[in-house]
Simulated assay, not measured.
Amino acid sequence: MSDAIARFRTATETGDIDALMHALAPDAELVSPLSGRLVFRGRDDLRVLLSAAYGSLTGLRWTEQIGDGARRVLLADAAIGPFRLTEALVLGLDDEGRIRTLQPHLRPWLTLTYLAVRLAPGLFKHPGILRRASRAA
């Protein structure tokens, strides 16, 4: 397991956003699982997004890691409010082994909808993040 992935797993399970940011490349980006079109880029915007997202979850446990090389998949179970959530997170690593891309796949639909409702107020406090995420690459 790469050091960045180990740091990411521990940081997200314990809510340590600073450690999480150190696992990411400076130009890291996350493709929104809600829209499929929004792409959140850079540590500053990802700090806000990932703080809200992982801060909303309880009982997060990464259960499996698949792959080696520059592309990995992490599987997780968690809860948000009264709902169970499963995640398959596709990670791309840069040449230095830091996480460069994050592509979360969440289910079930009802839980994903609940997560969107929980995240919206926090993201609306930072309208620039949504505006930047909506720009084409």
Rank of each mutant, 00 (worst) to 15 (best):
S2Y: 10
H105S: 05
A78N: 09
M21Y: 10
T113E: 14
R132S: 05
S2R: 12
R100Q: 12
T58I: 08
R7F: 01
Y114C: 00
D45I: 03
M1N: 06
G69C: 05
L49K: 07
I17Y: 12
F83E: 11
L119E: 10
S32W: 14
L38A: 09
Q65T: 02
P108M: 07
L89F: 06
V117I: 15
A136V: 15
H22Y: 11
D16T: 01
A11G: 07
R98V: 00
G15R: 05
A19M: 12
G59H: 13
V31P: 03
T101F: 09
M1Q: 06
A116D: 15
Q103A: 00
V39T: 12
L20G: 06
G59W: 14
H105F: 12
A53S: 08
A28M: 10
A76N: 08
T14W: 08
D44Y: 07
M21D: 04
P82D: 13
R98T: 02
R7T: 12
A4M: 07
T63D: 03
R98S: 05
R84A: 11
T12R: 08
G15W: 07
A25M: 08
A11T: 10
T113K: 15
G42D: 09
L91I: 04
I99T: 04
S134K: 13
P121Y: 13
P82A: 00
R132L: 02
L89I: 08
P104I: 05
Q65P: 03
A19R: 13
G92V: 00
V39Y: 13
A78Q: 14
R7A: 04
P33V: 02
I66E: 08
L30R: 07
L130Q: 11
L46R: 07
L85W: 09
Y114K: 07
Q103D: 03
A136F: 15
A137G: 14
P82I: 01
G92W: 06
S51T: 14
R71K: 10
D44G: 04
I66N: 01
P26M: 04
L91G: 02
E87H: 01
H126T: 04
L30C: 03
L93K: 09
A52Q: 14
S51L: 08
S134I: 06
R72N: 12
T63E: 13
A19Y: 11
L112Q: 11
E64G: 04
